[in-house]
Design a protein around this nucleic acid. Sequence first.
DNA 1: GGTCTCGGAGTGAACGTTCACTCCGCTATA
DNA 2: TATAGCGGAGTGAACGTTCACTCCGAGACC
Lengths: 206, 206
Amino acid sequence: MANSEKRQEILNAALELITEHGFHGAPIAAIAQRAGVGAGTIYRYFATKDILIIELFQELHDKICEYLMEGYEEEQPFRTRFLHLSTALLRYFITNPQEFRYLEQYFNSPYGVEFRRDKILKSEGDGMPYRVLFEEGMRQQVVRDLPVVVLFALTFGPLLAVARDHILGFVDLDERLLVQTVEACWDSVKVCPMELAKKNVYPAAE
Amino acid sequence: MANSEKRQEILNAALELITEHGFHGAPIAAIAQRAGVGAGTIYRYFATKDILIIELFQELHDKICEYLMEGYEEEQPFRTRFLHLSTALLRYFITNPQEFRYLEQYFNSPYGVEFRRDKILKSEGDGMPYRVLFEEGMRQQVVRDLPVVVLFALTFGPLLAVARDHILGFVDLDERLLVQTVEACWDSVKVCPMELAKKNVYPAAE
DNA sequence: GGTCTCGGAGTGAACGTTCACTCCGCTATA
DNA sequence: TATAGCGGAGTGAACGTTCACTCCGAGACC
């Protein structure tokens, strides 16, 4: 087994075991066994278990970002762009349940809080298509005038919840239902036409 | 210290420590110390640590249900009822951050999955005002025709996410913003007037 | 009333288990 | 043979749980 192959085997084994049994139910010894290496070998590639967990997250994160941007076009209208990103994200999750479960655990742990703190506080839009979409959309009165954090919550909250429920078997998200769900999310983020009309006709009323 | 007082002290200590450090960062020894009792005493009230965790959850759950139903009136229109429940829930969370953090951890663990499996599979609406609201709302074409699980996701997904972000200090949810957020949730759950009109005029188109 | 007895709640040191991590001998390759 | 990478038994710390013991207040008896 080549060098980098062994590293990948360790990451795969960690993904599988952590997905099945959680961070605390996946001891280094078990990861080593499933990867077909010795326990000590893991420490030749990752200084600590924490670092293994973080690097695994970063690999998955990069993979998803790449997937989301496939076929994404800045020139499309806001709604189209939102639907593209969100359906792609949801579709990725339900076709890669293992990766989803890992990410879910990661975000619901102190690791994830740190990650989000970084992302939110540094206000650059680099590589964050959603942020750009929301900020530009607010300027053009297509997206509600709410803090970006709230818009994120309105979008990712439902998406993560339905993905989880689908994977747990609580609902069967076929393509039609998936699109309906994402459209519903959009309706919570967009400025609805009636509100917009009211604002423009009686600007002082607000 | 009376008998039941001691039990409450243990529950309080567990709530504090688990909120601060997670399930795995709150050893029985530490809970006992904070509660001012011996480690062995805890096992006179709770057979295992798991049972302590589950009973603590049930106490908090009951408390919230009671709070939500204060001033709730079945006769009000759907939107009013939805806003009542959801603003109450969100307000409860941000004024009781410790309880929220505990519930969040609980739901994001195997305990929570079991709980939700029970709640979803038994389709009785007993003590579940949201479920009644959604099912009745769908029949009257006020709420979108989606699986109840998806409607739950559209509602609780954003609410939990913004509550968490408020508590972590990523956003400041004042009363105005809180209501705006809940209204946005409603817009993802309700049937929007244009859709309804379309459906009624061209019923065959769908 | 004073003293003795007893039941059971309370205690915390000790136990067995599990874990992340280390260390040193082994092996494959050149 | 020399070297670099690897393996897995070993290590100490930390955990949930147990159990032999302490302590105290309520009755029983004088």
